[in-house]
């Protein structure tokens, strides 16, 4: 196995008296997909948001590039490498094209390069025909594909997906699965939470189950057999 991109160590998080995460460790490898399961309220989303830098942990350390730092210190450097996608993605006011281009303005690309990247990304996700359509008028499945494209264009090292296929029909799931496979084969590390693990058969390399604040590795085949 390759060297991990990032290792999150000893993540602890409590809400009031409720301990959600207890010394959780998570290693993220390039071109590998982790499937994260657990009951509602078990802390899956909280864990993903801590990894993405959107939620502050009580305690955590991050190891990357051979150095170990506290979460607070390290997250500033690695935030741009990690993108989190909501269960129901939020698309900004504007058309599909402007949504896909949103993150590019914070990169070093010039206007022409940005435009070329957007065109390529829309072709990549087969959304070129919808480029000028208002994003929030699209169906849930297409909105998720726009969100994938908006993330893909920034070439993050890690993609965190919270229940990405929960509101999709069969056709949208197939299209989304196809895009995720391409992201993984491009070298992205992917972490997916899902109540229906079998959707990700053939994509996930390892499955962890989050229960009582602890992350436990479980058999991928077992989860795929579940209803």
């Amino acid at each position: 196995m390759n060297e991990p991109l990032f290792i999150f160590r000893g993540i602890e998080k409590s809400f009031a008296e409720n301990e959600i995460l207890r010394k959780v460790d998570l290693s993220l490898y390039p071109a590998k997909c982790i499937l994260l399961s657990g009951k509602n309220g078990s802390g899956k989303t909280t864990l993903l948001k801590i990894v993405a830098g959107l939620e502050k942990p009580d305690v955590a350390e991050i190891e990357y590039a051979g150095k170990t730092n506290s979460w607070k210190k390290a997250i500033r450097s690695i935030r741009k490498e990690i993108i989190y996608l909501h269960q129901q993605p939020f698309l900004f006011s504007g058309n599909v094209e402007s949504n896909v281009a949103y993150g590019l303005r914070f990169t070093s690309l010039n206007r022409k390069q940005c435009r070329e990247s957007v065109i390529k990304a829309l072709e990549w996700s087969r959304l070129s025909d919808l480029a000028k359509i208002q994003a929030n008028t699209l169906s849930g499945g297409v909105q998720q594909r726009v969100a994938f494209t908006r993330a893909w264009i920034l070439k993050p090292k890690v993609l965190l997906l919270d229940e990405p296929m929960s509101n999709m029909d069969q056709e949208s799931r197939e299209q989304a699965f196809f895009l995720l496979c391409r992201m993984k084969s491009a070298g992205m590390s992917i972490v997916i939470t899902s109540h229906v693990p079998q959707y990700f058969y053939g994509l996930a390399d390892v499955q962890f189950h989050l229960s009582n604040g602890k992350l436990v590795q479980s058999e991928l085949s077992a989860c795929n057999d579940s209803p």
Binding site: A52, G53, R79, I83
Partner: peptide, 9 residues
Amino acid sequence: ETSRTLGAP
């Protein structure tokens, strides 16, 4: 959250 995760200051 979306704006932040997409790299916006």
